[in-house]
Structures are given as structure tokens and as C-alpha cells.
Design a protein around this nucleic acid. Structure first.
Lengths: 233, 233
DNA sequence: GACAACCCTCGTACAGTGTGCGAGAGGATT
DNA sequence: AATCCTCTCGCACACTGTACGAGGGTTGTC
């Protein structure tokens, strides 16, 4: 009956803050630094301890385990997202700003990608954003469950669009590759797929960063249009 | 000039198959078993070696490193995706079938979620699906870069929708939690967000599996509608 | 002052991880 | 018979998360 409860950090009382030298905030901040600099694999308890001039296991006083720490860092990044009031700027504008903001934050903290499919986002910052999204699509005219469907569709698009972008950046990073040689390899790999070949021939002379930004806007408009269409029928 | 080339398995010549007892295919198959049974953390080279009655390091003859092995397993799962010919069933039907198929495959192999943001999908199976998607949206009437934008939007939706589903399943699995106690905790956590509260009060008496399927269809129709709208203007 | 109760730190240890290296077995080729 | 090529694997290294328990420091109570 009283089984082991669900173990997210957010669903249990935090240790009451007595504000000594070290604190949970300080630890999370240092963890964020490490994550941003070296990625998800760059964060280890020993390195984090060293960065704080502490023993690795000292951190376990503030945090039950590494996953909890990641949950805290994860949520901290959601704090940077700008979510305008839809009653002031209109729902489409609010949604658009949020979408771009989420994308930017994700690109700036690529390690988030590794957590998306593993940890739930239940922290206060994530909830704040989620709440704003609900508000936005309610304002748009959705009711009942459809509010959640719309929010889910919207966030799905933003996540799904940004994630492969991160994966691509990650594989490119640190490899000073020979562009021509790689192009040749890709062409060989896609030899059997005429449609793919056509695409590869196309995008050679475009800046991929710009391309992706354009693609993002194209898709965003499409998704918002598609959602809006649910309202009129 | 000739820097270290990009290191995906797919972009280098495979070791020529001499078909001994052990083979790459066999190894990948065993890895898939392990991944499906125990998840991404359940796969270790030593365990995999034991499963094949081999030493852990023997596998490195067939595979350069663990990431390559994951790329191979990753691509193998794309083989299970059904992608109908859009010229036969129409582009909307083709897209819809692909979307559901991708979702099903991802839910059946949840460890894929951990790889989405980390490894590129460049294997033959992934390319086959990508090619079909291009074909589908070309058939729909898109031209030039917009074909790729449409494909990206579409896949983004499918990924983004399924990923949180997997994350949720993962956190629930193995924790025989007290539903009421957890509900109470969630309510406390969302106390500051009236819109969220409203939602939580709502979905208590619905089967979450059904809800998610409905949400997926709702979003899918929205996204396809939104894309279709790009064609008429 | 003495003693106890706490908050907090950290050294040690354990069971694991990926993988580089190099010795060797066995078959094929010259 | 000698040489080479394909393949296996034990060992070792550096590293991981974290359980445990011994201690130090501060605070509170008699």
C-alpha cells in the first residue's frame, strides 16, 4: 500500500535551509557551469566536489543522488525562459516568443537534450512555463482537454525541432572534419535514395544555421495555424 | 586539411564480412535484446560479451566503440517502421501511418529516447524512412527547401510528442507508488499555478494511455492541417 | 563547566564502467 | 615450413556513483 513513493526531488520536502557555507543553490550553480562547459559527461560528483573545494561525497548531504542534482539543474534552466502574458500580447505572439525562447535556452544548454527523455520536468520553473502555456492556449479559445492537447502539440514541436539540431551540433563539435570528404561519404551513403540526394545537392551552399532558423519559423507558423484551425470548426 | 573525419559508423567502410561464428549482426541483435529488456543502462560491453559467451573486449573487433554499437542498434529499430507509398494511399494517409508507426516503435524501444539528442540517424533504415517522408511531402505539393521544412516539422512533432511519454513511463516503471499520496504531492507542488491545478483535477478519472493516444491524433491532425495550409496560399 | 544532540565533511571502499594493449591461437597463403 | 591475417581475450587503467561510518564543529540543556 504505502509503496516506495515516486522519487523526484520536487515531490518531497527539501532539507530546511540553514544557510551554511555550502548550499544547494551553490552546488546547482557549479553543476550548471560544469554542464555548460563540458556537457552531460563532464559532470561527475568528484569534479563538482573539486570545483567547490569539497569532497565528492559531501554533496550527498544536500542532494540524494546525481539524478536529483540533474533535476535541479534542469529546472534552473527553465528559469531563463521568457513567457509573455497572452492577455497583453495575444496568444500567437505569446506562443511564438515562448517557442523561440525555449529553443534558445536548449541550444545554449545542449545537455538538456540528454535529460528530456529521462527525467520529468516538475520543478517550479518548468511549472511556471507550463502554466503560461496553458494560459496561452486557453486564451486562444481552447477548452477542457483540448487545452492540454494544444500545449502538448506546441511543446512537442519545439522539443522535436530543437533536439536533432543539438544532436547535429554535438557530433560536429570537436571534429575538425574535411567538409569535402564528408560530403562525398554522405553522397555514397545516400546513393540508393534519389530524393535524399536531391536534397543534399541543394543545401550545400546555404548556411545551416540560417536554414534551421528559417525551418523553425516555417514549422512554428504551420503548427500554430493548424491549432488555430481546430478552433473555428 | 585531412582532419579527423566525422566518426559515425555509417560514414566509413565496414570491415568486410568474412562470416565467422560471431558477426556484427549477431552482436547488434544481442544488444537490442539487452536494451529492450533492461534499458540503456542495462547495456554494458561486459554483459553483452557474457550474453554471447565472449570476452567483453572481443566485441571491439567488430565495432570501434560503444557509441558505434548504439548507432547500429538505433538504426536497426528504424527497420520496423512501416512507410506506405504516398502515390498509392495519398500523402496524408502516408504521413499518418508513418507517424503512428514511429510512435509505436519508440514506445516499444524506449531507450531510443536517450539517443535522439546524442547521435545522428544516418543508417540505411533511417535514410529509407527519411526518403519516404521527403517523397510524401513532395507528393503533397511542397517544392525546394519547403519539402525539408515540412519533413522536419512533421518528425519534430512525432519525436516531441513521444519523448515525454517515454520519460513519464520510465519514471513510473518499477515504482509501485501510492497513487493518492502522489496526487497529493503533485497538488502541493502546483499550488501556485491555478491553471495547472485545474488540469490535474480534470484528468484524474481518465485512462492516461487513452488520453495520450487521443492527444497524439489531435496534434497530428493539427500539424498536417497547418502544413497543408502552406500549400494553398 | 559538562554532556548530549545536531549538522555537516570526507576518507575509504565497493562494484561497476569503457576501452588500449599486447600476447596468443588457428587457419590460409606463399 | 614459414609467414601473414583474422580473431579472441586477460589484464590494466582511469574513471564512475554512492554506502558507510568515523570524526569535527556548533549549539542547546542541565
Amino acid at each position: 500500500m504505502t509503496g516506495k513513493a515516486y522519487s523526484s526531488v520536487w515531490l518531497r520536502e527539501p532539507r530546511k535551509a540553514t544557510s551554511p557555507g555550502r548550499s544547494r543553490e551553490e552546488i546547482v550553480r557549479a553543476a550548471l557551469d560544469l554542464l555548460d562547459e563540458e556537457g552531460i559527461d563532464g559532470l561527475s560528483m568528484r569534479k563538482l566536489g573539486a570545483k567547490l573545494s569539497a569532497g565528492a561525497t559531501s554533496l550527498y548531504w544536500y542532494v540524494a543522488n546525481k539524478d536529483e542534482l540533474l533535476e535541479l539543474a534542469y529546472d534552473a534552466t527553465w528559469g531563463a525562459i521568457t513567457a509573455p502574458d497572452p492577455d497583453e500580447v495575444g496568444w500567437r505572439e505569446a506562443a511564438s516568443v515562448m517557442a523561440h525562447s525555449v529553443r534558445q535556452v536548449m541550444l545554449r544548454h545542449p545537455w538538456i537534450a540528454s535529460l528530456l527523455g529521462r527525467l520529468p520536468a516538475l520543478g517550479p520553473n518548468a511549472l511556471r512555463v507550463a502554466d503560461r502555456m496553458r494560459q496561452t492556449f486557453k486564451r486562444a479559445g481552447f477548452t477542457g482537454f483540448e487545452i492540454d492537447y494544444a500545449v502538448a502539440t506546441f511543446t512537442a514541436y519545439v522539443y522535436g525541432m530543437t533536439l536533432p539540431e543539438i544532436a547535429w551540433n554535438a557530433t560536429m563539435a570537436g571534429h575538425d572534419y574535411d567538409a569535402d570528404a564528408m560530403r562525398e561519404q554522405v553522397i555514397r551513403a545516400t546513393a540508393d535514395f534519389p530524393d535524399m540526394r536531391e536534397r543534399i545537392d541543394m543545401d550545400t551552399y546555404e548556411d545551416p544555421r540560417v536554414m534551421r532558423a528559417v525551418a523553425f519559423d516555417f514549422g512554428l507558423v504551420s503548427v500554430l495555424d493548424g491549432l488555430e484551425r481546430r478552433l473555428v470548426t
